[in-house]
Write a protein that binds this DNA or RNA. Structure first.
Lengths: 408, 408
DNA sequence: CAATAATAAATAAGAGTGAGTTATTTATTG
DNA sequence: CAATAAATAACTCACTCTTATTTATTATTG
């Protein structure tokens, strides 16, 4: 079953489904994005560094970067002395160069953040609910945006470059049978939430899977940007994933790439089950409920779960093994450099989970594969909302997504 | 364990591991490749068609295509009358526009083919052996190339644009314990066969996994070019695979993407085994041996295996189920549009195998996934050698592989 | 049924843009 | 003060775009 909302969209119609040619403005745009991408990855770089890396002439880089500085995307840093020759002037991203809105629509709450060009959170809005409902969600977005925009100067306001939505794929399917009326959940199935929110905004609106978005946050704002290709797991209420190929978030032809929660892994009795059935936080919740332990910290305090007893240990062990199988399967498809694991959990638990995966991995038959190294994610609980905000950023300012330079 | 030979190489040193900028010649080259890619995909196209598809101006397309025609890459077809306005002149690929050499190094034989710009096989050279040995292989390549080049006019000879090698990953590991001396097989581990062959050639030499190469043949010469993203299985002595993303063969950071033979799938007793242990032709061979049937047609007559009895039926069933699991796992990583299955087997068997997969697929839990459609490959037994030849073609004439336009 | 209009492909001439080249300036270390 | 390296200025060159023109066909009309 396909989610009609999951056709990534921008503000412009794209009448040509095919490849497009390149002209001078496309070339310039590509080179500008390249400069911004390199500066983002390295923190700060001198014009001469960029020229060497890109093989563009020093003059060309000079022109491009002066323009980017003039446009407020780059800032000069103190000249670097100590080596022969004129000191180089490192250029860094200007945090105020552009702003982005990230919207996470979850099963228990919606969250909207305003972030700056380097991923700093400038404001946060939150709406908890028993179950999500499209009308309420759109109202929340409308009022939150109105509120945050009034707090900005006109100059800042004009620099809001886009909004991204992170939402579970097939939200209606995974809804809690408990609280959610069937009819409300079915609304999600047919409603094009992206268009509804686009109607509120004069900047482009993008939508992607929540775990894929979280992966985008890791790529754009995290410390994993030394990696060109990695597979990413976000362990939330349900386990999900994302894919980075050639340094770009890859969400696939239908937007459902990195649907790692649906990966078949060996189950307790030998029969295959889905990763989601072993590595989700709801699985831990059920185990705690069955043991008459209080599971509420799982949702309310992701920074510290307190003592959850042996149920946690068992979950970490089983989830880690399941993730290890998923990693081997993913490595059979793409020879990822790394597997990055993050989630809605305390950093200490995340670390234990990564250790469990690292421990289980060598016990799986991986003959013929180059196994990825396993790493912790570096964003944490905010990854989905920040990832949502990273979507317009990537689309507009990085060499990414549809990145062949196109006509303008 | 990593195969040092599996660093895809070209004839030029690539000192910059990073992204490169675009300049005018890069822009022109990109647009030329785009034209050739579109003409290849559609069979023939008028200049005006290309202009509409690429959004380039008619004049630009006119200039580019007249140049490509002058350079011998495009041919005029009869004008298309019947509609209002000046008749359009479709342009098609000139088969003699460029030639490519494909080399397959297998476990039982090496094969070298010369193909033209549209995939026509112009000559074939074959060397059967009990086990592969690097020295013999290089000698075979040297003499075959010498021979085929003397049969070409100087004009044709100068149009040989590259050579591709298709070779199993970790050839030494899968070697038949029977015939192959350990020492000879170990030579493969350390020898850089690509460089050795590059030394014989004045055109660039590429190397890729054999199944990945076969996938490239399907993409470039097959009838699967309506697909932007697909997963490909080549069932040879061992099962292997390849990946196509955004219309380009993706071989991954280490060249080991699409290592689908190593995919864990449920085994006969519940414990996971690798796909290779269920869906390889060697598995069928062993079953035939155990039943005292003659397995030799498997290798000697891939066009017609004759009657192989119930062992074949069992193998098709088991291999089909295993492939179905591998497809679901792959679909969890990337939401491929299609799964294409080809191999060293008669077309009728390939068809039965695809049916077995299609039958097994709906019985696997694929909640949350968009399952790809299952298709037969359209190249068949020659896929690996032709795929090898497709590597330099893609690299040089299609928007592909390292396809961001770069400086020249 | 010719004459003319409409349509679309293809091309020509010239403008505009952006990267490359060469030479120059600037600021530092040795 | 020489050597080195960053940064920039002036100018050239390549390639696409725009506008106008030519060409070949089908459709329309008196």
């Amino acid at each position: 079953m396909q989610n009609s909302a999951f056709k990534r969209g921008s503000t412009e119609p794209e009448p040509s489904p095919m490849h497009r040619g390149t002209n001078q403005s496309g070339m310039r745009e590509h080179n500008e994005r390249l400069v911004l991408s390199l500066v983002r990855r390295h923190g700060s770089l001198a014009k001469s560094d960029i020229a060497r890396m890109t093989r563009l002439s020093a003059q060309t880089v000079s022109v491009i970067m002066r323009q980017l500085e003039k446009d407020g995307f780059l800032l000069r840093r103190p000249p670097q002395r100590g080596r022969v020759g004129q000191p180089s002037i490192p250029m860094a991203l200007n945090p105020d160069g552009a702003y982005f809105i990230g919207l996470k629509i979850g099963r228990r709450s919606a969250e909207l953040v305003l972030i700056d060009f380097v991923g700093g959170i400038r404001s946060t809005h939150r709406l908890p609910y028993r179950y999500p409902d499209p009308g309420t969600a759109v109202d929340f977005v409308a009022s939150s945006i109105r509120e945050l925009r009034t707090a900005l100067t006109p100059e800042q306001d004009s620099r809001i470059a886009g909004l991204g939505i992170a939402m579970p794929f097939q939200l209606w399917n995974w809804a809690d049978a408990a609280g959610a009326p069937r009819m409300v959940m079915d609304e999600w199935r047919h409603r094009d939430i992206r268009s509804d929110i686009q109607a509120l905004c004069d900047f482009p609106v993008y939508l992607d899977n929540d775990a894929t978005s979280a992966c985008g946050a890791e790529l754009v704002f995290g410390k994993s940007n030394d990696l060109r290709d990695f597979v990413y797991f976000y362990i939330g209420a349900f386990a999900g994933g994302g894919i980075v190929l050639d340094g770009r978030l890859y969400s696939g032809p239908t937007g459902n790439a990195g649907a790692l929660g649906s990966m078949p892994v060996p189950g307790p009795n030998g029969a295959p089950v889905q990763l989601i059935d072993l590595a989700s936080i709801t699985v831990l919740e059920k185990a705690l409920d069955a043991a008459d332990r209080d599971a509420s910290p799982l949702w309310s305090s992701p920074q510290d779960w307190g003592d959850l007893g042996p149920e946690l240990d068992i979950w970490v062990e089983k989830a880690g093994t399941a993730l290890a199988y998923a990693i081997v399967s993913a490595a059979s498809v793409i020879d990822f450099e790394a597997a990055v694991i993050d989630g809605w959990m305390p950093a200490a638990i995340r670390q234990r989970l990564v250790e469990a995966v690292s421990h289980a991995l060598p016990r799986i038959d991986a003959e013929g594969l180059n196994l990825p190294t396993v790493r912790e994610g570096t964003i944490g609980v905010n990854a989905r909302a920040m990832g949502a905000a990273s979507l317009p950023l990537s689309e507009r300012y990085l060499v990414g997504a549809m990145s062949l330079p196109t006509n303008v």
